[in-house]
Simulated scan of single mutants.
Amino acid sequence: MAFDPWSPAFVADPYPGFAELRAAGRVHWFAPSGQWLVPHHADVRALLGDRRLGRTYLHRFTHEEFGRTPPPAGHEPFHVLNDNGLLDLEAPDHTRIRRLVTQAFTPRTVTALAPVVERLVRELVDGLLAEGGGDLIADVAEPLPVAVIAEMLGVPAADRGLLRPWSADICGMYELNPDEATAQRAVRASVEFSAYLRELIADRRVRPADDLISALVAACDEGERLSEQEVVSTCALLLNAGHEATVNTTGNGWWALFRHPDQLAALRRDPALVPQAVEELMRYDTPLQLFERWVLDDIEIGGTVVERGSEVALLLGSANHDPAVFPDPDRLDVTRTGSAHLSFGAGIHYCLGAPLARLELAAVFGALLRRVPGLRLVAEPQWKPGFVIRGLRELRVEC
């Protein structure tokens, strides 16, 4: 089988395997994870918007009715936090919560963050320059989105070091077949993060501030408000999902540019290419490789009936390298326009934070290209073991 998400070699370069899957058909049963793999762009795009599939099935069925085993009782804190967030809800709850969250997380909110993002990027690049280099991921890519989300939520600066470890432990549960040790780390982080957020929410109810938590608490539409758990889960989702795109696109993107010096040179000659280069880098080495959906009603893919109760794995990384949509898809081209990549998803679960991620990525790539024109790689990086959320352990550079 061309698909081997636990193989370090496959994680390092899944794209030849994806090409084999696309050539072999439109849908493939993968017994190790109990999922149907969907590798083609047209199918992935269509299924992301197909209401016969869902991120959950509990709005229509019990676990037993759906033929599934309930999660262990000891994992409940993780599922309470995760399952009340937008990413894992379906209508009508998803519709109501997204409408209320959109009132608080507006385009104006993102625009207002631009000076904050620019300041944070400047400070992080200053630090890299002062040291003559370092780990681009630990020193620049990771601190930026965590600081931005913390600023947006209103998390005090002294507490911001707590956020990244919590997020990393929770996100471990999104990998295929996570083990019990991973689950226990996620449970502990869910308990601690939820308790921390509840304290912040309680404070904002008494002393509202100009931050997203206050706005979420105040959001109201036709008498409807977010419950406290929905506010907690929304804040956690913004952190967990919000930083992954920026961290891994920055790391994966610079690694791609170092391997394609002609494209890096083109960007250095013309920084105006940065916004479309960000889109190309997200397509070329997708930070989120796979998106899972439950089949709520029988569907047919390429003549294969996928029955209700099944789970499909929509291979975003494969879709983003589909030659039916992207000419010469395995070539990095920072001048590529009109990108139809699916890195932010599609349909009702299209990433709410996409504008903020684009703002952060344009700022960090632009600043490094402009202020560190001699940035160079020190050592070939190693990939983290995770496949679903795919990124580098570190990226050592010199200025």
Rank of each mutant, 00 (worst) to 15 (best):
A130W: 10
A346E: 04
G317N: 14
S190V: 09
D210N: 14
E228R: 02
D135M: 05
S190L: 10
Q103P: 08
S167D: 13
R122V: 07
Q35E: 15
E244D: 13
D285G: 04
L257T: 03
F291R: 07
L129P: 06
F326W: 10
H79M: 08
S310P: 08
R308A: 12
V378S: 11
P32F: 15
L359I: 09
E311Y: 06
L48N: 01
P32R: 12
E118L: 11
E279C: 00
N320G: 10
G366D: 12
P77H: 05
R22C: 02
W166V: 05
G54Y: 05
P355D: 02
E307T: 13
V117M: 06
V388Y: 08
D211G: 12
L216A: 07
L163K: 03
E175H: 10
A195S: 10
E279M: 00
H260F: 03
R119S: 12
R358Y: 00
L162D: 11
V27L: 10
R99D: 13
T95A: 14
F10P: 08
G302D: 04
L375E: 01
E228K: 04
A138F: 09
N248L: 15
R371L: 15
V305W: 02
C171D: 10
L100W: 05
G317Y: 09
E230N: 11
L100T: 05
A2F: 04
P32G: 09
A362C: 12
P381D: 00
M282N: 06
R52M: 10
S339R: 00
P355L: 02
H63P: 01
R331P: 12
P373K: 11
L176M: 08
L58F: 04
W29L: 07
D285P: 04
A266W: 03
A23T: 05
A19S: 14
A150K: 07
D270M: 03
A168W: 00
A168K: 10
A138M: 10
R51I: 03
V232C: 11
L226P: 01
A147T: 10
D93Q: 13
F291E: 10
A266P: 12
A215P: 06
L296G: 12
A31M: 03
L212Y: 08
L314N: 11
H63W: 13
T56N: 05
F365K: 01
V11D: 02
A195P: 01
V116Y: 12
